[in-house]
Design a protein around this nucleic acid. Structure first.
Length: 585
RNA sequence: GGCCCCGUAGCUCAGUUGGAUAGAGCACCAGAUUCCUAAUCUGGGGGUCGCAGGUUCGAAUCCUGCCGGGGUCACCA
């Protein structure tokens, strides 16, 4: 139940009445009419700009039109009073009987409260992480991983058909470097002293176990082979092991992809890359040509050469993009084209790419590919995540590119835990930079929003435990309150909580539409705040405490309200991928 | 130089896709616990929304131009 949707219907009906009465013209566009919670509680419970938006096309004065609408709205039984305010706002004060209905609706929907069909089953592919399998995940991957996952949760909760996808590059020259590095570790595992790892290879310790696995499964047989022979074997083995490690790390962060898509599956004779390029070729979107030199400072090694280009400029990109290099090899971008086509062939209508801010330059070309391949039928939506800067007690954590001198995701998880990582990463707009301080995020204070929100949930669970002990409810885990009188929820603080709860659907809807999961995190914080406030009012005014053994009817109603808040907190945290704790000591 | 993102209280950040008197937290000041978890709450001061124009009933939000900060530019992956 979304009361704002409900009152939107009411407002729409009032508009229809005015149309039939001739006050408003036929076919007037109501798209810009907003029915929303007012920022200022003094402006009633629900507010609409309808009169101001419609005044111009109707040739009426906003306030006069508002007056006419108020006459219609005041006839509605859900509305205590509709009044004109300011330049032509209509503020609705809702009948008090609406609030208990909100609580009842939450209890009725339970784990599904807030879930909607707004997405209408539109098929969305969310691609995130997609780190190359040449090493373990590090903090640089973390934000995109969490963001992508929460976005996927959010979209699924909102009625979209979501697939979570990971694209891994197992075809490029970097993977050869990985294999060569692993081969060195393999020789080391067989007892050879390989000395310092040569520059150009990956020196990280994480390849030592890979070498050991190779030694265990191949013995010394690889040493007998030429590089052409062992390279493919070692490459595949190394990629498999790296991907297994990456998946394990992601699992620890509560992230599981549906599809792991291998780049090498795109290549080969008659493969998707060839098909996709032939497709573009057939439509005259590929040509042999030369690119203009880059603007500004000319790179030292720049040379003007003929290559095969995709007409990206026809679709809004700044320059045409190379698909086949002058040496005849495909570019990485060619694989991107084929990969998009794969997604399109799999019937996705929207392809979300979660990328780091350093990939901002890819946005236009990806959108160009989407436009060209799908003919405008599918769209590429790119969400960029800004950099995360690590701190420890206010001091920046230095990370150089030298061996092993970067903080891995594993280390981060082990130190602060998945819930803290996820919530902090999501408690900021994705395109704003984020400072992540190891010490601050694990502090158990109000300053730390993770604990603040989780504590609200735990507090409710604590109330239930106490209520169960007192025999007011049979079981703290299965709070079923079918026969309580929710009209007993009369206190202003209680109503404030209910109003907050009533906004949940609206928040989810807006967050999903904007692809902004952080809105859910901020909402969680606000709801937690409303709960903590009411809790503390019970300290000054004992009659407002959730549990009052002498007033069992009121207690039952308040426990029902707590149960509703708990559902909303749990459902919201579920979207964020954070565990709602039942106890914090 | 071209393109993208950011600029809001002393600090860190929100701002419901254009709404009414711009909001939280931290910090600062003053308070609250014999009582369901004080990991909490209540009150107070604090603003030229980077600057200047434009669009309109109405702009932190949309458009243009500047200023300042970051990212990016390829036959790399």
């Amino acid at each position: 139940m979304d009361i704002f949707e409900h009152f939107r219907d009411v407002v729409t009906a009032a508009i229809a009445n005015l149309v039939s009465r001739g006050t408003l013209p036929q076919g007037i566009d109501t798209a810009r009419v907003a029915v929303e919670p007012p920022r200022d509680p003094g402006h009633g419970d629900v507010t609409t700009n309808a009169a101001m938006v419609l005044a111009k096309p109707a040739g009426a004065k906003p306030r006069e039109l508002a007056e006419a609408m108020c006459v219609e709205l005041n006839a509605q039984e859900d509305i205590v009073i509709a009044e004109v305010a300011g330049p032509g706002f209509i503020n609705l004060t809702v009948d008090p009987s609406v609030w208990p209905k909100v609580v009842a609706a939450v209890l009725n929907d339970g784990d599904d409260y807030g879930r909607s069909t707004a997405g209408q089953g539109v098929s969305i592919n969310v691609e995130y992480v997609s780190a190359n399998p040449t090493g373990p995940l590090h903090v640089g991957h973390c934000r995109g991983a969490v963001f992508g996952d929460a976005l996927a949760n959010l979209l699924a909760f909102s009625g979209y058909d979501v697939v979570r996808e990971y694209y891994f590059n197992d075809a490029g020259s970097q993977v050869d470097v990985l294999a060569k590095s692993a081969f060195l570790r393999y020789r080391e595992a067989l007892g050879e002293d390989v000395g310092e790892i040569p520059s150009g290879l990956y020196p990280g310790d994480y390849l030592i176990p890979v070498g050991q696995v190779l030694a265990d499964s191949y013995g010394s047989s690889l040493l007998e082979m030429s590089e052409d022979e062992w390279l493919p074997l070692v490459r595949r083995e190394s990629v498999d092991l790296m991907m297994a490690a990456i998946r394990a790390d992601l699992k620890s962060l509560n992230i599981e992809h549906d599809v792991f898509f291998s780049e090498s599956a795109l290549h080969g004779p008659g493969g998707p890359v060839e098909t996709a390029l032939a497709d573009l070729q057939a439509r005259g979107l590929v040509y042999e040509g030369r690119l203009p030199p880059p603007k500004g400072q000319l790179p030292e090694d720049w040379e003007d050469r003929e290559q095969t280009l995709f007409k990206a400029t026809e679709f809004g990109d700044d320059v045409d993009r190379t698909v086949i290099k002058s040496d005849g090899a495909y570019t990485y971008f060619a694989a991107d084209v084929a990969y998009f086509k794969s997604k399109y062939d799999r019937k996705f209508q929207e392809m979300v790419y979660v990328l780091g801010a350093d990939h901002g330059g890819y946005v236009k070309r990806l959108q160009a590919v989407a436009e060209a391949i799908s003919g405008g039928q599918a769209k590429a939506v790119v969400r960029l995540c800004q950099l995360v800067k690590l701190f420890r007690g206010g001091e920046p954590v230095r990370m150089s590119k030298r061996a092993g001198d970067f903080v891995t995701l594993r280390e981060l998880i082990n130190e602060v835990g998945p819930d803290v990582i996820r919530f902090i990463m999501l408690f900021r707009k994705n395109d704003a930079p984020l400072d992540f301080d190891f010490e601050k995020v694990t502090e158990q204070t109000r300053e730390n929003p993770v604990f603040y929100v989780q504590y609200a949930h735990a507090r409710i669970c604590s109330v239930f435990r106490n209520a169960a002990e007192m025999g007011l409810i049979p079981d703290s885990e299965h709070v079923t309150l079918t026969n309580c009188d929710l009209n007993l929820l009369q206190d202003g603080g209680e109503i404030a909580i209910i109003k907050r709860i009533a906004e949940f659907s609206r928040v989810i809807h807006g967050a999903a539409a904007a692809h902004e999961p952080h809105r859910v995190a901020f909402y969680m914080y606000e709801l937690a705040s409303a709960l903590h406030a009411q809790w503390n009012r019970g300290k000054e005014l004992p009659q407002l405490r959730f549990i009052d053994e002498k007033e069992t009817d009121v207690t039952a109603a308040r426990l029902a309200l707590c149960r509703a808040v708990r559902y909303v907190l749990a459902n919201g945290l579920g979207i964020l991928g954070v565990v709602p704790l039942k106890e914090m000591r």
